[in-house]
Write a protein that binds this DNA or RNA. Structure first.
Lengths: 226, 226
DNA sequence: GCACCATAAATTGTATACAATATATATGGA
DNA sequence: TCCATATATATTGTATACAATTTATGGTGC
């Protein structure tokens, strides 16, 4: 493989492989193998692995090295619950800045998603789905929040790798187009609700042990729906 | 100084110095000086500095090394706005888990704050104020959110160092006791509102250039208050 | 005195060496 | 055959060496 690659490039490359499920949870990441693959010394690789560890994408055990994180069920719930709380919260700000250009940009992205779906290119589909969410967050104008959400999106991909069912991914797509249309029409509350439901749906598609957290609420289940 | 200190210890030590305004924004953090101070090689120090850089507490410029971050006004606003959004959001969850033990714990903490205030121990006061906020966040049961808020608290300390007025710190204290009493009484909405107002007050105590972001809203200003 | 350039000192970037630890393999006894 | 132990191999942890770059110093001309 070619030489003299920046740390940032190596970081993105490894992250991408994990997010796209090429490197499954638990996969060992030996420093000298990576060192050889990227043609850089172990020093650079360690730096990248430590960064990924801080972001919880990778887990480093003392004297045992790095492996792709195996998120716990607890962590899975917390990450998804965080997204359910935060992403709808940013919708009003996104809408304030919403323009025709944005709309076109995101429609283009949905097109790419559908293309990946048709070609059964799981890797691209996962990556695009996450990208849709964090790019939207970035349009809120609050980059501090957006970067946090971006990390949660990467962690979600890992969580889907660990707890997702066969169709978790494609099913998830649930058509981001609907959201765009709501934003075009300026329907704040419906857009917020869509986002909440969308993420809740992803969460419930995970094969997590049932707990208090997701006891069936018959009241809600059989209430009149819109 | 004594030898063989863990990376974690060094990290906390440097973080503490920055949060407590011993190391002001812009202060250079030369690797070999720190290396000597902690009795470890530059390797360990670099690792710690890189972590702090990812957390935005420190800024590393290529070939120029690390210095304590100088947050921009934009960043200051985004961090505070994020806290204004998030911390009230966690109040309901905190309340669900609220117990007499918690109450006592936080009352103890307020006592310590007041002690620090009386002794004019600015460093402790800043640290305790931040700690109050992030410990509360941890009692929400969502550690993913709590860790993010913890980071935002550290960044806030840095922001106060950069943009705070003389009495930003002591004034801020605005009595955390009030919040505890609201939680004791189970007043969710009032507690949420208290938190929002408290953080908004901190934000407006900063010497930031006036922008759209904080134009005076007369409507709101002269509305009937409770 | 001040700007400018050359040189010296200090500081960071990167690779590598060696020690410490963990994992894998092989050997011997029950 | 299986398990325990010893040895060998592989892998990580840490310090250090050297190159690359920046910052400081000093001298020269104007």
């Amino acid at each position: 493989m070619s030489n003299n690659l920046s740390d940032e490039y190596i970081y993105k490359q490894i992250l991408k492989s994990i997010v796209e499920h090429q490197l499954p949870p638990g996969a060992r990441l030996p420093e000298d193998k990576l060192s050889e693959a990227f043609g850089r010394s172990r020093t650079s690789i360690r730096k990248v692995l430590q960064r990924l560890a801080l972001e919880r994408i990778v887990t480093i055990a003392p004297n045992k090295g790095a492996q792709v994180s195996r998120p716990s069920e607890q962590e899975a719930k917390e990450v998804l619950n965080s997204r359910i709380m935060l992403e709808p919260l940013l919708i009003p700000e996104v809408l304030k800045r919403w323009s025709n250009t944005n709309s076109k940009h995101f429609r283009q992205m949905v097109k790419a998603e559908k293309q990946a779906e048709k070609e059964e290119d799981q890797a691209s589909l996962i990556q695009l789905t996450a990208q849709f969410h964090y790019e939207l967050a970035h349009f809120s104008g609050n980059s501090v929040m957006a970067e946090f959400i971006e990390q949660l999106c990467y962690r979600s991909s890992l969580i889907i790798a660990a707890f997702g069912s066969r169709h978790s991914v494609s099913c998830d797509c649930g058509d981001h187009l609907v959201l765009i249309e709501l934003l075009d029409k300026g329907e704040v509350q419906r857009a917020e609700k869509w986002m909440r439901d969308h993420l809740t749906h992803i969460k419930s598609s995970l094969k997590l042990t049932i707990s208090d957290d997701q006891k069936i609420n018959f009241q809600q289940l059989f209430s009149t729906m819109d």
